[in-house]
Amino acid sequence: MTTFVQAIVNGLGEGAVFALLALGFVIIYKATETVNFAHGSLALFGGYVIYRAKEHLPWFPSVVIGVVAAALLGLLIERLLLSRAKNATPDSLAILTIGVDIVILTEITRRLGTAAAPFLGDPYDSKPMHLFGATVSRTYVVALIVALLLIGLFFAAFRYTNWGLAMRAQAENREASALMGIRSWRVTASAWLVGGGLAGIAVIFLATNDIGGGSGLLASHTVAFAAFPAAVLGGLTSAEGAVVGGLLVGLTDSIASQYVDLNFASVAVYLVMLLVLVVRPAGLFGRVEQARV
């Protein structure tokens, strides 16, 4: 029983982090129809900045700087690169983000050199706590709480602010919303800003011994790859879907690695996703396109 509680808590905590990543991913997709292959690199970059800032500053201000940096990097990618590729199809833009991902990953790995792997979860990493009679790592619980707060905040903003209205309008119909006076580039740029920021927050949980494992920050790029199945499973056009998808991926991974084996866990995530897609081809909450002749 304690093992089960542990698996559930781990799964939910990990899933909440995936939800943050998947949410950013979906926001970017909704605004620009671009699949962002560089999402892991946004997280990695934020983490690298936090790591460098921590050499001079306490933990919390460093995290703030890193999150802002990741958000700005997202903005830069959109403004400097994507917006210049006017004739490119969404597929080509996705490939462009692969190029960005390779450059960032290579450069940060080079900069880290042979130094010890950075860890970013100072206040909670590797600290046990007791919950329902089981001993669990604090990281998972903190991650779950922080992620739920942020996601709640996002949904409120999405529903009640002008920015949210503009986002929804543009996702609904880009041309009509432009005609209504919504500045398309602002919506697009802000989507990348938010996506980058969320990735920057996710990394402070990924780069821990508890979730990312012994490679710390270096593993976060790989772990962040799980945002893909999470976002697709929930439906790429749905923010709610991203959250559900993230939690589902986290739970699947945690339960499969606990009760089957570690190697099977990542396959299990994709099998669950495949199963969902066969039943619902646009994900759990995704919009199904109507065919018109």
Partner: peptide
Amino acid sequence: GTAFTPVVITNLIYGALIVLIVI
């Protein structure tokens, strides 16, 4: 281990080329 080895340079050029070609 922070040198620009041929492998690092290759990866950087490769990534940058993809970006430039799409743009």
